[in-house]
Design a protein around this nucleic acid. Structure first.
Length: 120
DNA sequence: AGTTTGACCTACG
DNA sequence: TCGTAGGCCAAAC
């Protein structure tokens, strides 16, 4: 029991996870790969996300960032769009464009795992 | 089938 | 803190 999902392709599993990210929360590429049953396949999670830009998938792609707590879309010519969207949802970024993952990263399943304690 | 690509990650200096 | 180097593995060509 409690086995990792093994249904569908890696891409399907990643997209399913992205669709479940609540507003104002974020997940990392490595985290998506881990929960998709492929630890270490963080780059592929990013590859899947890049495919979303091809068309409107309706998924909250903006809530996926890297393990450093920063957005990775600024290199693609999207400017600060992703960071702006996340800020609009309440995610706070520091002066160096970084956010505290310990506070904003979301883990599916049970909220009893990593509670944000208090939002102050 | 083999090669190349990447919205990455971790380690090191 | 920033830049560089190597590793990682699914999907595209």
């Amino acid at each position: 029991m409690s086995s990792p999902p093994t249904e569908g392709t890696f891409r399907e599993r990643v997209l399913a996870l992205v669709a479940r990210i609540p507003p104002g929360r974020v997940m990392t590429y490595g985290q998506l790969a881990l929960l998709a049953g492929q630890p270490g396949a963080a780059r592929q999670a990013g590859y899947v996300m890049n495919a979303l830009m091809d068309g409107d998938s309706g998924l909250p792609w903006q809530r996926v960032i890297n393990a450093q707590g920063r957005v990775s879309t600024h290199k693609l010519g999207f400017g600060d769009l992703q960071e702006g969207l996340l800020r609009a949802e309440g995610v706070e970024f520091g002066a160096s464009g970084r956010c505290d993952l310990a506070r904003w990263q979301w883990w599916p399943g049970g909220e009893a795992h990593s509670p944000p304690t208090r939002l102050r």
